[in-house]
């Protein structure tokens, strides 16, 4: 499942409940029908009301209002990605703004968010697998209006069987990778500080988001589970705002910014 990932003996299961917030779409290009408004368009049956309160895109992003300019200009097609822990959960979210008259349209935009929630323990033990799965599968695409409500709103959780990474191989990769030094330095230096800290990467560091998330996955996999600020680590990609705690962020448009500097 995780291409090129060093595999140890044994598998484990990672599981996420999901919630989609946005509008239903229909037809070619995913045009929003006139009757469709904002709503929860998909929900796993296992999400309890207490957890659901945490899944507002505003709360996950720490914003008062989610606007298109909260998303890096080079990430507006696929949307921004956020992974952060909260209240014993790991929440992974992708949000974008898409035209109501369908992909490639020119009309009014609407927000479309896909949110996964899983156990924090699963994230702490398998960060690389969680990020790899999210990089590949987490898409902010609207649900189809023709799918029955009863199915969409009582969805089964998402499950993947993932290989346990080989710790020695992860260590070897991290020791050689040019990006690892900066990530691990931030995590080590801020381990006891309690302060917020942000480390930015751009297109000069990683050509794509997927490579960035794979790199962060390796760096976090290298981190001991006893690391004191595990719950404060957040990962963001294409998100123009910073997140509280220890934030590793990828901003593709930084390529231009660095070139200009």
């Amino acid at each position: 499942m995780v291409a090129g990932f060093p595999v140890d003996a044994g598998d484990c299961l990672i599981s996420f409940d999901r919630l989609h917030y946005g509008k239903l779409a229909a037809g070619e290009g995913g045009r929003v029908p006139a009757y469709a408004g904002y709503e929860v368009t998909r929900r796993s049956q296992g999400i309890d009301p207490q957890t659901e309160r945490l899944l507002s895109p505003l709360r996950v992003a720490g914003l008062r209002r989610f606007e298109p300019d909260a998303i890096d200009i080079d990430s507006r097609g696929a949307g921004c990605f956020i992974a952060r822990a909260t209240a014993g959960n790991i929440i992974l979210m992708r949000t974008r703004f898409r035209p109501e008259d369908g992909e490639g349209g020119a009309g009014r935009l609407h927000q479309q968010s896909a949110i996964w929630v899983g156990s924090f323990e699963s994230w702490r033990r398998n960060p690389a697998a969680c990020l790899a799965v999210a990089a590949q599968e987490l898409r902010a695409d609207p649900d189809h209006a023709l799918e029955r409500d009863a199915l969409r709103l009582n969805d089964a959780p998402l499950r993947w069987r993932v290989a346990q990474p080989d710790c020695a191989a992860v260590a070897r990769i991290v020791e050689r990778a040019p990006w690892a030094h900066a990530m691990l330095r931030l995590l080590v230096e801020e381990a006891e500080s309690g302060a917020d800290s942000l480390l930015d990467f751009g297109a000069a560091d990683f050509p794509t988001e997927r490579e960035f998330l794979a790199a962060v996955g390796f760096a976090l996999q290298f981190l001991p589970t006893a690391y004191p600020r595990w719950a404060e680590i957040s990962v963001a990609s294409g998100f123009a705002q910073s997140l509280p705690g220890l934030c590793l962020r990828y901003s593709p448009s930084w390529r231009q910014a660095r070139a200009a500097a």
Partner: peptide
């Protein structure tokens, strides 16, 4: 501020106000 952003969104075709909060 928020109002300037709203005006800019309006100029660019508009953004549907979400149901996550009142503004």
């Amino acid at each position: 501020g928020d109002y300037e952003r709203m005006k800019r969104d309006f100029a660019e075709g508009g953004v549907a106000t979400d149901t996550l909060d009142t503004y």
